[in-house]
Design a protein around this nucleic acid. Structure first.
Lengths: 339, 339
DNA sequence: ATTACAATATACAACGTTGTAACAAAAAAG
DNA sequence: CTTTTTTGTTACAACGTTGTATATTGTAAT
């Protein structure tokens, strides 16, 4: 049998309430007693029973992290795990632990989420935007359960979310290409369902308008954002009469496809055309040429998300919907980098 | 106030023990009663209080996943997260949840681990070999706490571990190069502290011996396994008199460095020399040329680890130390792939 | 000396389950 | 018609904390 608070109390000659207070650093305990009790705790090798404490305190000091997860996810989507690392660090710093949950096994959407708040095991939840639909979002709001959604949902909703400013990211990308001399810019990315791609595109469009530049609709390729589709699309674009002198890729698989198409077309970057993409992907920096990117610090965004969640656990009335973590340009080999 | 088991009992006209048994699918309850109680549970929207249940049951049905974690980890080490995904799927299937913990913030090594088993919050632990030293391993064994270590520890120990057979992986790599015609094989990898690299090397050496081939010590480069060091090392190796016609790289950063050196030396693969590496890294398959790899399915290895842990939770006497997940050749563009 | 007031320490009732032992009822055996 | 066995249900004591209300002590002001 493990040593309990009562054993310590008996040994130290105090009541077990006192021991509890010492353990929880209550201010209503004199220095002297605290020291004495701590000595006994140390000597008897006492560790509080978290299960009992959780039960009594009605809080587990732990939050749930919900996301979609498939085999190969860590390779396909490392940004999400980097985000997770950030969340983790911030929560750990504040004494919270974090439980990872997969939504992709749900029979009905929202099953896992329902389990999270009804079961009483968690103080809050961080949920990936992809793992949320309109109904589950409404559920979240109605329960007024502490939460933060990673990524602005595609639909209108009252949930608290945190995201990168993708419109601004598009803005930065377009601006960089224009400064580097591009006039005839193309955009290759995901279709309507890919809201991130759409937001980046809208940022791009706004900048072009501002500079009085036109982007003909034939220069906007919305596909499934896969490597192969992008390669084919880019090849067609590059073979046409007035080929673009700047391409903005909505994400890395697209960029890699486009890079191949450029190589196959025998063109070189950045002299013949510039290319820019989003979210630095591991090892792309050693590619030749290495793509210029507009990057987001997902680790930092995770930290911010966690810190926001803790705030709203303390004050459940808090409602935040905001862009954090400004996107940042990393100029590399596929653009003319004017100072 | 949330609805408790007592409310349900009163409403259903049974004792609250009965409700508990219905909830836990005890066989000592008649079909009829069970049905009636379930109806009330449904109607009153009762969900058991996990905190109370955990406390009483002295089990949380949750396990801890300990690992080293730094900013950028998800990019540098996606295999670990893929492993984690596998662990997660298997545990979720069996109704266990999984809590992620970071060891890198420990003041003294073993602090987090100590918290895991003394605090009584977890039924078992999966710990990364890197996050373990000799002392903490001994602690783990002495506590006889259910655990599995990911990766065979570098030191002798009684802990339960699961790993890929890296000696076999080295064997497969060397064999493939020899079959492709290489006679003068080099190995570039991490130094003595990098046990994975060492095991792969020992597999390589055994095969060469078997084929009666020599690998001069000058062909074995043990560095920090970084991209840059490997590039420099390979460049030197390739400029020497009797340059190797086959290079085995201990991991991907090494391989990428070597690929650069080969390109810079104006050599082409696989005609001038063959190259092989380990653990398929995302997007390397689109590189030109794309490296041949001896791969491990980390997802599957995670699943096996989880399943092993659950077994040893049920039967704490179980002691397993084993290689699972056989390495598998993925022949790509840097080797002569003889059928 | 008495009273007032902090500052500390204690007593003890929760918290919501689960598991065990006790019990009742029905069925089977004598 | 009793006795035994089986099956289904109940009563209730834990589990180890925390927080609140209460008691005790020490110090300062009257």
């Amino acid at each position: 049998m493990a040593v309990t608070i009562k054993d310590v109390a008996r040994e130290a000659g105090v009541s077990f309430s006192t021991v509890s207070k010492v353990v929880n650093n209550s201010p209503f305990i004199s220095e002297a007693t605290a020291l004495r009790v701590k000595e006994v705790i140390e000597r008897m090798n006492y560790t509080p029973n978290v299960r009992a404490a959780n039960f009594k305190r009605r809080s587990t000091r732990s939050i749930a992290f919900l996301s979609l997860l498939h085999k190969g996810e860590a390779y396909a989507n490392p940004h999400m795990f980097e985000f997770f690392c950030g969340v983790h660090r911030e929560l750990a710093r504040k004494g919270y632990s974090i439980t990872f949950m997969n939504v992709s096994g749900d029979k009905k959407p929202g099953d896992t989420l329902k389990a999270v708040f009804s079961a009483g095991g968690y103080d809050g939840v961080i949920i990936h935007g992809w793992a949320l639909n309109h109904d589950t979002a409404t559920m979240l709001v109605k329960e007024s359960f502490p939460h933060v959604v990673m990524g602005k949902p595609a639909f209108e909703s009252q949930v608290c979310w945190i995201d990168t400013n993708n419109i601004l990211a598009g803005d930065i990308a377009a601006r960089h290409l224009i400064e580097g001399g591009s006039q005839n810019i193309a955009f290759i990315g995901g279709d309507r369902n890919d809201t991130i791609s759409m937001r980046r595109l809208s940022g791009v469009r706004a900048v072009l308008r501002g500079f009085g530049l036109k982007m003909p609709e034939s220069n906007v390729l919305l596909t499934d954002a896969s490597l192969e589709e992008s390669r084919l699309g880019a090849a067609k674009l590059l073979s046409q009469d007035k080929r673009p002198d700047g391409i903005i890729c909505s994400c890395n698989p697209v960029a890699i496809g486009v890079l191949e198409a450029v190589r196959e077309a025998g063109l070189s970057m950045p002299s013949d055309l510039q290319l820019i993409t989003f979210d630095a992907y591991p090892f792309t920096h050693i590619m030749n040429p290495s793509p210029t990117v507009v990057n987001t610090d997902f680790f930092e965004q995770g930290e911010q998300t966690a810190s926001q969640l803790l705030k709203s656990i303390k004050n459940p009335a808090l409602r935040v919907q905001s862009y954090v973590a400004l996107p940042e340009l990393i100029a590399r080999g596929t653009t003319n980098n004017i100072l």
